[in-house]
Simulated assay, not measured.
Amino acid sequence: MVWKVAHRNTIEFHVWGDYGLFSDVLTRASGEKCSYDIPTYEALKGITHSIYYKPTIVWKIDAVRIMNRIQTERKGIRPLKYGEGGNDLAYYTYLRQVSYQVRAHFEWNENHPELACDRNENKHHNIAKRMVERGGRRDIFLGTRECQGYVEPCVFGSGEGYYDNSGEIPYSFMYHGITYADEAVLPEDKGQMTVRFWKPVMQDGVIQFLPPEECTFKRHIKPMAIKKFGRDEGNFIGLDEFAGGEADELGE
Rank of each mutant, 00 (worst) to 15 (best):
A6V: 06
T10G: 05
E12I: 11
F13E: 05
Y19H: 04
Y19D: 00
L21P: 08
D24H: 13
V25W: 05
V25I: 03
R28F: 07
G31E: 08
K33M: 14
K33A: 12
S35A: 13
E42I: 00
L44V: 09
G46D: 00
T48F: 10
Y53M: 08
K60G: 02
D62M: 05
R65H: 06
R69G: 06
R69E: 15
I70L: 11
I70C: 13
Q71S: 15
Q71R: 05
Q71W: 00
K75A: 12
K75R: 15
K75V: 13
K75Q: 15
G76L: 09
I77T: 13
R78S: 12
P79Q: 04
Y82W: 08
E84P: 03
L89W: 12
T93E: 15
L95G: 02
L95E: 06
R96F: 01
R103V: 00
H105N: 10
F106T: 11
N111Y: 03
N111I: 01
H112P: 07
E114Q: 13
A116D: 11
A116I: 06
N122P: 00
K123H: 15
K123F: 15
H124F: 12
I127R: 13
A128P: 09
A128F: 15
R130G: 14
V132K: 00
R138T: 02
R138K: 06
I140G: 11
L142C: 02
R145Y: 07
G149W: 04
Y150W: 14
V155R: 08
G157K: 05
S158N: 07
S158V: 03
Y163L: 08
D164P: 11
I169G: 01
I169C: 09
M174P: 01
T179D: 09
Y180V: 02
A181L: 01
E183L: 00
A184Q: 09
P187R: 07
P187M: 04
G191T: 10
M193Y: 00
T194K: 05
T194V: 15
V195K: 15
V195W: 11
K199T: 03
M202S: 14
D204S: 06
G205I: 01
G205D: 08
V206T: 05
E213C: 03
E213T: 01
E213Y: 03
C215I: 03
T216S: 15
F217N: 10
K218W: 13
I221V: 15
M224K: 03
M224R: 01
A225Q: 12
G230E: 00
G234V: 06
G234F: 07
N235F: 03
I237T: 09
G238E: 15
G238A: 14
G238S: 14
A243I: 05
G245N: 09
G245H: 03
E246K: 08
A247D: 14
